[in-house]
Nucleic acid binder design. Structure first.
Length: 307
RNA sequence: GCACAGGUGACCGAGUGGUUAAUGGUAGCAGACUGUAAAUCUGCCGCUCUUCGGAGCUACGGAGGUUCGAAUCCUCCCCUGUGCA
């Protein structure tokens, strides 16, 4: 009972995390720490389903709109900022509630990342060029020499991960997997309660379809057009919804096709999120949507005991 | 009604006599994930068994036929698209 409580809510897109976190924050005097790799960027509004202005005045939100579209927020950045926010909230005597769907960021926050070098754009560019010239197996062979263990666990086709492993092993002059041995630095000082939302697959997919479509009628195309003009190289422009909106703007697909592709992308994403979250330890799972009053009551009840 | 084109596994789509349960792709399901993660990648994917080596059954619009052997060739029928009437 000595350590303060930290509530962590996760689940696939459109499972109702926002609604639930809002409800719990009001009920238990909490503040919300978003865990969303796209909502951190300003001006990305419609496609990210950020909580509304009104909702954000009702309950303080953190880690939303903290970066310019031209910035690049990494899992490490997120972890540091989120930990800082959580400690501040807790120091104020309020309940920190982490809510989001970005699995890696969540893990970076809770378990920490290994202390390795951060990105090196030049090295990455060089390695990517190698892949272009010689194919993915060439760089994978390279990794086999520098870090055989990593090479074994990373598939040769997974270029992104092969490159990161090489980047680490080269710049640190130590195999990445060896650096992993030194462990990570997990978040300490909190009793962490993990709440997982796992609505029925079919119902979730229907909800995703409806929501993705609504984003388009709410002006996603226009928002994407404006963003593309001002920040043509912005990273989050490649995220779900924006990507398809831009394809439509370029004349690569009709509006209908873009909507269908966005819906499909969100459905696939939700599935990937679930396979990530299923591995999470000590999760209290709930089968309904977060916006569902019955589910909210059940979660509220199980939380009330702990507070 | 005539003339072409075509009907392939949930869908799209290759295959034009034999190592073909049938290349690909998509969807679906399962999985991986340590600083791009709304990313990137992997496996399974007709049915039934299996000592996990395999075994059996059913499949390329339908019915017959040719052949040792057909999704592939022939005949008839049904359906779809396009053109001409």
């Amino acid at each position: 009972m000595s350590e303060p409580l930290l509530v962590v809510i996760f689940g696939p897109t459109a499972s109702g995390k926002t609604g639930l976190s809002l409800h719990l924050a009001e009920r238990f005097q909490g503040e919300i720490v978003s865990c969303d790799s796209v909502a951190v960027y300003r001006e990305f509004e419609i496609g990210t389903a950020k909580p509304s202005r009104e909702e954000r005045t009702r309950v303080p939100h953190h880690l939303i709109d903290i970066a310019s579209p031209n910035d690049l927020v990494t899992a490490g950045d997120y972890s540091r900022l989120a930990r800082h926010a959580i400690h501040e909230i807790s120091a104020r005597g309020r309940l920190p509630i982490v809510a989001g769907g970005t699995g890696l960021y969540l893990r970076a926050l809770l378990e920490g990342l290994f202390t390795g070098p951060s990105r090196s754009e030049e090295l990455r560019a060089r390695l990517r060029a190698r892949v272009e010239e010689r194919g993915p197996h060439y760089v994978h062979k390279l990794l086999r020499r520098l870090d055989p263990k990593a090479a074994q666990s990373i598939h040769a086709n997974d270029i992104a991960k092969v490159i990161r492993a090489l980047e680490v092993s080269i710049t640190a002059r130590t195999p990445m997997t060896q650096m992993w041995q030194e462990g990570r630095e997990p978040l300490r000082g909190f009793r962490i309660v993990r709440i997982g939302l796992n609505p029925d697959r079919e119902a979730l997919y229907a909800r995703i379809n409806a929501r993705a479509k609504e984003m388009f009628s709410a002006g996603l195309i226009e928002e994407a057009r404006a963003l593309l003009e001002r920040y043509p190289d912005a990273r989050p422009l490649t995220s779900l919804g924006y990507k398809q909106a831009i394809q439509h703007l370029r004349g690569e697909m009709t509006l209908e096709e873009a909507i269908a592709a966005a819906q499909q992308g969100h459905r696939n994403y939700a599935k990937r999120q679930m396979t990530w979250f299923r591995r999470e330890p000590e999760v209290e799972w709930f089968a309904g949507f977060g916006a569902d009053p019955e589910t909210q009551r059940a979660i509220e009840k199980s939380l009330a005991v702990l507070i």
